[in-house]
Amino acid sequence: MKDIKPAILLFIIFTIICGGIYPALVTGVAYFLFPKQAAGSFITDKSGKVLGSTLIGQPFSDPKYFWPRPSATSDFTNNAMASGGSNAGPTNPSYIRTVSDRIKTLRDTGVTGKIPADLVQASASGLDPHITPESALLQVPRVAKARGVSEEMLIKIVAQTTEGRQLRFLGAPRVNVLVLNHALGS
């Protein structure tokens, strides 16, 4: 029974160290060294108004904007309060129907040929801020038509927004949809 005392006291001490001091210390260092990232990588316009976080994708369905990946979050797509994927199994008939519907929506905007998987399959977080460069280029004709601008100009903006592999070997090339759509507006 003499082991009860260390069991309780060690727990209390480590709660203070690991549960209080540790996160506070990390928060302090994070705010001192990387205040922008620690706060959520928010972007603002020239007047200082917050436009959103570069890390949290927003929903777009208007033809004049580039569309993000499908999102399976509840209530509405890219709902940041309900992160998560569809968890649809690969042979689930209703999932295959959902994918067909998404393909049809894209075909209705004049898309021909093969469609990149990321544009019709839902992301893991439901908040994926990126699409592949192929998926962005696929949407250029539609956005150009809706905005009445040249495709060349949009291709250029997509190219400028494309991020390569990190440190040249990590991950996949990608385009941030929110950043891209804000770049279009200006």
């Binding site: 990946r69 690969p90 994918v99 393909i103 992301s123 994926d128 996949a172």
Partner: peptide, 26 residues
Amino acid sequence: GNPLVSRLAVSGSNMEGKEVRFGLAG
């Protein structure tokens, strides 16, 4: 990939439940 999806004229590996930035290896 998933043949049930690929045969709808979709290209690439299975992206359901994955994030673009990590790539397949990530």
